[in-house]
C-alpha cells in the first residue's frame, strides 16, 4: 500500500525537480514519536528483534502534542529527506 504512495508521489503532481541521485546516498529520515505509544512500539519492535531500516532516527516527545511546526521545518531546513510523526 505504501509502495503505491511512493509511486504516486513521483507522478506529475510532485513539485520537485528530478535530480540525479548521487552514489552512496541514503535517505535521512526523522521520526517524531510519542513516548507512550509510538516510542514504546519502537522499543517493542526492538525487543521482538524485528529488523527495520537504519535510516530512521527517532526523536522522542513526551506526547505528539508537543510537536511544533518549527520542529518539522527545522528538520527540512537542515536537509532531512523525510519526516514522520507517530503517536
Amino acid at each position: 500500500m505504501m509502495g503505491n504512495d511512493a509511486a504516486n508521489s513521483e507522478g506529475p503532481k510532485s513539485p520537485e525537480k528530478q535530480q540525479e541521485v548521487p552514489a552512496g546516498w541514503k535517505a535521512n529520515i526523522i521520526a517524531f514519536a510519542c513516548h507512550y505509544c509510538a516510542f514504546a512500539a519502537a522499543d517493542l519492535a526492538g525487543v521482538m528483534r524485528l529488523s527495520y531500516p537504519s535510516n530512521v532516527k527517532v526523536v522522542r516527545l513526551p506526547c505528539t502534542g508537543k510537536l511544533d511546526h518549527v520542529y518539522l521545518l527545522r528538520a527540512f531546513e537542515r536537509g532531512i529527506d523525510g519526516v514522520f510523526v507517530a503517536g
Partner: peptide, 16 residues
Amino acid sequence: NKEAEILASLLRMRAV
C-alpha cells in the same frame, strides 16, 4: 512571534 519563527525558517529554505 511563532509565525515569525516559521516564516524565518521558510525564508531560510528558500534562500538555500
